[in-house]
Design a protein around this nucleic acid. Sequence first.
RNA 1: GCCCGGGUGGCGAAAUGGCAGACGCAACAGACUUAAAAUCUGUUGUCAGUAAUGGCGUGCGGGUUCGAGUCCCGCCCCGGGCACCA
Length: 853
Amino acid sequence: MGFEEYDFKAVEKKWQDYWEKNKTFKTPDISEKPKLYVLDMFPYPSGAGLHVGHPEGYTATDIYCRFKRMNGFNVLHPMGWDAFGLPAEQYAVDTGTHPSITTKKNIENFTRQIKALGFSYDWDREVNTTDKHYFRWTQWIFLQLHKKGLAYIDEIPVNWCPALGTVLANEEVIDGKSERGSHPVIRKPMKQWMLKITEYAERLLNDLEELDWSEGIKEMQRNWIGKSTGAEVTFNVDGSDEKITVYTTRPDTLFGATYMVLSPEHAIVDKIASAAQKSEVDAYKKKVAYMSDLERTGLSNEKTGAFTGAYAINPVNGTKIPIWIADYVLASYGTGAIMAVPAHDTRDFDFAVKFNIPVKCIIRPDAKEAASAKVDVEAVLAGKACWTGEGELINSANDEGLVLNGLKVVDSKKAATEWLEKRGIGKGAVNYKLRDWLFSRQRYWGEPFPVVHMEDGSIKLLDENELPLVLPELSDFKPSGTGESPLAKATDWLNYTDPVTGKKGRRETNTMPQWAGSCWYYLRYIDPQNDKQLVDPAKEKYWMPVDLYVGGAEHAVLHLLYARFWHKVLYDIGVVTTKEPFKRLVNQGMILGMSYKDERGALVPTDMVEIRNEGPFHKTTGEKLVEFPAKMSKSLKNVVNPDDVIKEYGADSMRLYEMFMGPLEAVKPWNTRGVEGVFRFIRKAWRMIGETEIADIELNREQLRLLHATIKKVGEDTNSLNFNTAISQMMIFSNEFSKLEKMPREAAEAFVKLLAPYAPHLAEELWEKLGHKESITYAPYPAFNPEFIKVSEVEILVQILGKPKARVMVPAGSDAATTEKLVMENEEVKALITGKTVKKLICVPGRLINIVI
RNA sequence: GCCCGGGUGGCGAAAUGGCAGACGCAACAGACUUAAAAUCUGUUGUCAGUAAUGGCGUGCGGGUUCGAGUCCCGCCCCGGGCACCA
C-alpha cells in the first residue's frame, strides 16, 4: 500500500554519523544543570569481541542517560578499556605479537561494536589503562599508598601457579585452581608487594550502610570482610615459660576446652614439641607444607593432626590439656592457635572423635531449639554429640570468682571476658577474615612498579616527576621460569642509576595486577586529559560520587572492594571529597543461551540441532531433544554475537529486546524469536508516524487518556529502571494509535520522545520527519496531565465471599458510602443476594466491594 | 553446611494484600494476495460442557485475612556466593 519499509541500516548509520560529527553527547565539565554520573563497568577488550551480555548493562545505562538528559540533567556517561591482562600476554607468548598491538586491535573492534549500538558515550573522555598518560597516575597512587605505609614487601606463601608462571591473589583461585584456565595452584614463599587493605576493614564494613546497593552484594562484602568479635586468651605451657595466646569467639566455653590446636606453621611448635613426639610433628609439618590449597582446605573435611607432647594449662580451672597441631587451624587467622571445645564446635568435635580426646559438655541445649534442630539433648550432655546453639551454661565455675552456671551464652561470653581482663590473661578482640591484598604479578603486561631495589638493599621509590615508568620493549614474553616476570630479561631497562647520588639499583620486575587500573578509572573520566593532577578538584567535587554504577555481579567482591579501598585512601589524602565512590549499584543478570540435551541428559551443541514444528531434534540421530537455558559457551555453540543481531534486526531492536526480556537484574535466556517481536514494534512505530499523515487534530477523550497514561507509565518505569514494562506500555500505545488514518501531531511528538531513549535511531529519524531540525537528545521530556488519566466512571468489582461475581459502574471518585449504595441497588447484585443475609460489606473505593453472607 | 536470590500458561514475563496471566513469543483460525512474505482481525491457563456456565489453578503443606502470587510458619527444588576464619 505504498508503505516504505523502515530501512534501519541506513537510518542507524545516518544518526550514528550525525552524533559523532556533531559531538552530540559531549559533556561540559561543569554546568548549571544538576549533574548525573552514570557509569558502566568498563570491559576487558578480549579477542572474542562483545557478547550479548555486555550490551545489556550498557543499554540500560544508555536509556537512563538519554532519559535524564531530556529531563534537564548534565549527564556524564563515559566508556573506556581495562586493557592490561593475561590473554594478550599469553597470545604474545604464543605468537610473538606485542600485547600492545593485540590490545589496540581488540579495542578497535570493541569500539566499532559499541558504536554500532548507538550508545551515547562522550568518546572524548575515553580512557585506557595501558596508556602511559593513564597508568602514570596508577603509579602515582601507588606512591601515595607507599607514603602512607599501606604498601609493603613481605615474604609469604603465595598461590603459585606453575602453568601460568605467576602468583595469584586468593580471589583468583577457585577451588584450588586458577580462575583463568583452571590450572593447579600450589603454595610457595615469595617476596611480594602487599597492600594493607586490612587497615580499612572496619570502614569498608561500616560505610556499606550508606550505599544504595542490593542487600545481597552488601552481604557478600560483609562476609568477605568477615568481622568477628571474641577474646584472646593466654594459656601457660605446662613445665615451661612459654605462653600461647588463642583467639576465640566463644570465651564462654573455656570450661569445655579439652585440648589446644596450633597451626603447623606456628613459631612455638618447635620449642614445645617433646622429644618423643618430635619426629611425628616434623613429619606432619612437612606433609602439610607440600599440600596445595585444594588438598588442604578442599572439600574433604577429614581431620588430620599430630600431638606435640606438650600440655597447656587451662586458665579457668588449671586443667592440663594436650597441645596438638592440625591443618584445620590456619596460621593466617587470629593468633594461629585455638582452644578446642569439642562439645560445642563441630570441627573440634570431629577432631576429638578421630583422636579420642575427651568431650566435655558445658552448655545444656535449649530444649526447643534442640528439638527443631533434631539434636538429642541427652547425647550432648553425655559428650556424644555436638551443640553449637543457645543454651544454659553448666559445669562452668571455679573458686576464683568465675561462675557462669545458669547463664545464657551471650551473658556468659561477657562475664568470661571481663574475668579474663581483670586477671590480665585475656582481652576482648576483633578479627577479620579479610587479608592484605597481594599486589604483585610476575607478568609483563601490567603497570610497572615505580620502585628500584638499590644495591645497598634499600628500596627507592621513583620521584613523581619520573612518572610514567613505561614498559620496555621485549621480543620474548615467556615467563622467566624462576618466578620472576619477563621484565627480568630487559637488561637495559632493569638497571637504574640514581640521577642525584649515582647509586645503582635494579628495577622491580613485578607488575601490578589487573585490578589496579580499574580501581580508580571512574575518577579519570572526570578529567581525562589532565597532566598536572589525577583529577581537578573542582571537577571532582561537581561530578562525584557516581550516581549509578551498572555491571555484572561477578565483581561483587573484588573490584568493588578494591576500588572502595583506594577511594578511601584518596579521600584521606584529599584527592576526592566523597567517602564512597559508587552511591548506587545495580547488577544486571546474566543472559543465558538456548541449549539442548537428549534424554540421557547429554548436552548437544546447537549446530547439531534441527528445530521442527514439534520441537528440537538431533540432526544426525533424529532423537527428540529438550530445550533449556545455559551459560553461553564455545563448546555448546550457543554464543549470540551482537553483530549478527544488529545485521538482521538493527541496533534499536537489539536494544529493545535486551530490555524487554525481563527485569534488568534477572537471569534471562536469549531467544532470537523474541527479537522479532520488538522488531515488529519498531516497524509499527515507523509506519504509525513515519508513513502516516500527521495532522493537527484534537485527541478524543480516550486517546488523550491513553496518551497521558503512557507518558506517566513510561516516564516512571524508565526512571526506576523497569524498562520491560515501559516497553510494554509503548506497545499498548502503538497498538491503538497505529489503527488511525491520521496521526494526531500532539500524540506523535510525545510518543517519539518517550521512544527516544530506547530506540534512539528511529526516534531521531521520526523527529526529523516531524519537522525538527535539532537532535531529539535534549528535547524536553513530555509531562502528563493527571486530569486526562482520570475516567468518569470506574468499574467496581462485586465479590461474594471473595469470589468475583459481578461488575457495576460507578462515578469515579465515589466514596465508600456512595459506592455501597449504588452497588447494592444494582439489579444483578440484588439477584445474587436474594434470600441471604448480608453479614458484612468490605468496600475499597474505586476498586471493589466484597459481600460477606 | 552457611549466606543471598528465585520457583506464575507451551515459552520470556506482568500484577500498592483487591478481577492472576498485561505486553511479547509460539500455536491455531480467518482477511488481504494468483501465491508467498509482510500486514491486519480473532482464539489460546486447565478440566467438564454444544453452550450459558461451573470446578481447579502462581513449587508443596499449614496459618493470618472479608480477600493471599503477594504477609507468617514448616518443607522441596533451581541459580549464585562463601566454605575448616575458631
